[in-house]
């Protein structure tokens, strides 16, 4: 059973290991709250799976607690917090994706994808204007041709799609 150390030379930090079980328990409790007044046919699965899940998480918590009490591990979050420079990039990429999804209904597919690509590459450290603009433009153009012009999918339309509609008939 592996619980690899995330701090070289130190005790393993196992606090981060509780995030997924914590989410699982929260979902199980929320699930139980939404089904308590329903007939058994609608609740049987959730109670069966939820009970197994809670039992497994309890065993997991006991295992971690024993390690911490014996002084073999800590409850730190090193596994998720290592490499601070990468953390900022990670937050930036998540923000770029979130921004792309948020802007999509307003700016349309092609323009928001172009801006999303630009933002992601800036976050990743691409500063030269040629590759920055060229890659973002290339990806947005290819995706426009594939998803809007060829496949006619229902991505939200914006100024670019309206402008190009007479040309591609989309």
């Amino acid at each position: 059973m592996s619980d690899s150390s995330s701090r070289p030379g130190g005790k393993p930090s196992l606090g981060a290991d509780l995030v997924i079980p914590g989410l699982a328990v929260a979902l199980a409790i929320y699930f139980f709250a939404t089904i308590q007044d329903l007939p058994w046919e609608a609740t049987a699965n959730a109670f069966a799976i939820g009970a197994i899940l809670l039992l497994l998480v309890a065993l997991f918590v006991v295992r971690i607690a024993l390690k911490v009490l014996r002084g073999e591990a800590t409850l730190g979050f090193d596994k998720l917090m290592d490499r601070p420079s990468a953390q900022w990039k990670r937050v930036g990429i998540v923000a770029a994706i979130g921004g792309f999804v948020a802007l999509l209904p307003w700016l349309g597919f092609t323009l928001s994808l172009f801006l999303g690509m630009m933002a992601s590459m800036l976050v990743m450290g691409v500063r030269e204007p040629k590759p920055l603009l060229g890659t973002a433009l290339g990806v947005a153009a290819c995706c426009y041709l594939m998803f809007i012009a060829l496949l006619d999918s229902n991505f939200p339309h914006g100024p670019v799609e309206s402008l190009l509609a007479p040309l591609f008939g989309s």
Binding site: S120, T135, C143
Partner: peptide, 10 residues
């Protein structure tokens, strides 16, 4: 730096 934006956006 190019691969990550391509993977995430596509």
């Amino acid at each position: 730096k190019y691969l990550v934006p391509l993977i995430t956006m596509l």
